[in-house]
Amino acid sequence: MTAGLREVRDGLRDIAPAAIAAIPIGLLFGALMASKGLTPAEVALMSGFVCAGGAQLAAVELWVHPAPILALAVSTVLIDARHVLMSTSLARRTEAFAWWQKMLGFYVMSDENWALGERRAAERTLTPAYFITMGATLWINWVTTTTLGAIGGAMLGDPRVYGADFAFTALFIGLAAAFVRGPGGMAVVAASGLASAATYVGVGAPWHVAAGAAAGVATAWALAGEDEEEALA
C-alpha cells in the first residue's frame, strides 16, 4: 500500500463514526427543510454549496417564501464566525498542501474533520489526502442524506402530528450544549435565551436572533475579565 493510500484509509477510518452519526441527522434535516417548502433539488443544492449544518438549520428556522436574503446572510455570518478561528488555527498545519488543495480542503471543513485534522497534525504531518478524504466523505454523506430526507419528508405530511416540528428545537439544544462549558457558558445561554424570548414577544421576528446573540456574546465578553487579557497581552 502506498503512503497516499494509507492516508486515505486513515481518513476514512477516523471520520467513520462522525459520518455514521450524521446519517439520521441528515435525513431529519432534509425532512425539516421539505416541511418549510424547499424542494428536494433546492435541498441538494443548499447542502452541496453551503455544506454547514448549523448555518443551514438556522436558515431553515428563518425560512419563509420568498427567501429573506438579508436575514439569512446575517444568521449565516453569526453561525459561521467560529470558522474564522478554526481556519486560522488549522491553516498553520497545511505546509504539505498545494494552493488548490487548501481551497478544496477548507471548502469542506466542518467541526468534526477540523478537530480530527488538528489532532492528526499534533502527531504527524497533516496530508491533503487525509484531510480531503474526511471532508469529501462528510460532503457526500450530507448531500445524499439531506436530499433523501427531503424526498421522504415531503411524503410524511404535517410534522406537528408526530412532534417533528419540535425536533428543530431539540436539535438546537443538543448542538448548543456541545459549546457550553462551565458557569460562564450557562450565563451566556441564559442571557441569550431571555433576551431572545423577550425581544420576540415585545418586538417580533427576526430581531430576536440578533438581540439574543448580542446579549450572549456581551455576557461572555464581560465575564472574561480585563485581568487575563492584560496578563497575556
Partner: peptide, 18 residues
C-alpha cells in the same frame, strides 16, 4: 471568549421563542 460564545448564543437565540 466573545468569539467562542457566538455559536451557542446564536443557537439559543434562534430557538428561545419556540
Amino acid at each position: 471568549a466573545a468569539f467562542n460564545a457566538v455559536p451557542p448564543a446564536v443557537l439559543v437565540a434562534l430557538i428561545a421563542p419556540s
